[in-house]
């Protein structure tokens, strides 16, 4: 084998080795989605959950198959869950921007047709927020609501994860309700 051929083969082998090393590092260094996961800050209803962006407290949880949300009737094939939350921002003039429901059975529900409204606020002033999410009744016992301050990107930041305290008895009661539940409006200074 001539010197130039040997050099060419060595070059190709070096390129292949560099590609393999890059692939190995990409798959094994903690630089993927895991390293950017949100930091879950757990809490219970009527308990303030401190996060980087706000102190968050779920003050009331209710539910029904139908809700009236700002004069619009919404009928769920499952159940609507209505969560009233107070949040006192630390740094920005806004509070909760994103919510999802994490079922007790491991299923996750995005807000979908539901709503998320917060009153106007400034750092240090408590805002009232109201979140509605629909979910299958069997997912609700043991479920939590996850709340983030950023509507677009929840990665690498604190997330309040609040156990809603919903039991099977509560779900059975909500399923019997025939009148639509009126969704409250968010209140400046916090939900009453």
């Amino acid at each position: 084998m001539s010197t130039s051929t040997r050099n060419r083969v060595a070059g190709v082998l070096l390129v292949l080795a560099a590609l393999a090393a890059g692939r190995f590092l990409d798959e094994n260094l903690p630089a993927g989605g895991d390293s950017l996961r949100p930091y879950d800050r757990h809490g219970l209803v009527q308990m303030a959950v401190p996060t980087r962006w706000a102190d968050v407290e779920a003050v009331r949880v209710s539910g029904a198959p139908q809700v009236i949300d700002r004069d619009t009737l919404a009928v769920s094939p499952g159940l609507w869950v209505v969560v009233e939350v107070n949040a006192t921002p630390h740094v920005d003039p806004f509070t909760i921007g994103w919510a999802e429901l994490r079922g007790g059975d491991g299923r996750t529900y995005s807000r979908g047709r539901g709503s998320l409204l917060c009153s106007a606020t400034n750092p240090g002033l408590t805002a009232g927020c109201v979140v509605t999410i629909e979910a299958a009744p069997e997912s609700l016992p043991g479920s939590s609501i996850a709340l983030s301050g950023n509507a677009m990107d929840q990665r690498a930041d604190d997330m309040a994860v609040i156990d809603l305290g919903i039991t099977q008895e509560v779900v059975d009661h909500w399923l019997t309700l025939t009148d639509p539940l009126e969704v409250p409006l968010p209140v400046t200074g916090g939900q009453p």
């Binding site: 009928v75 769920s76 094939p77 499952g78 529900y109 995005s110 979908g112 047709r113 299958a136 997912s139």
Partner: peptide, 14 residues
């Protein structure tokens, strides 16, 4: 059921 736009489809509901 209510004439609203369907957004995301949650699991376990028809």
């Amino acid at each position: 059921a209510d004439g609203t736009p369907l957004q995301d489809l949650g699991p376990g509901m028809t």
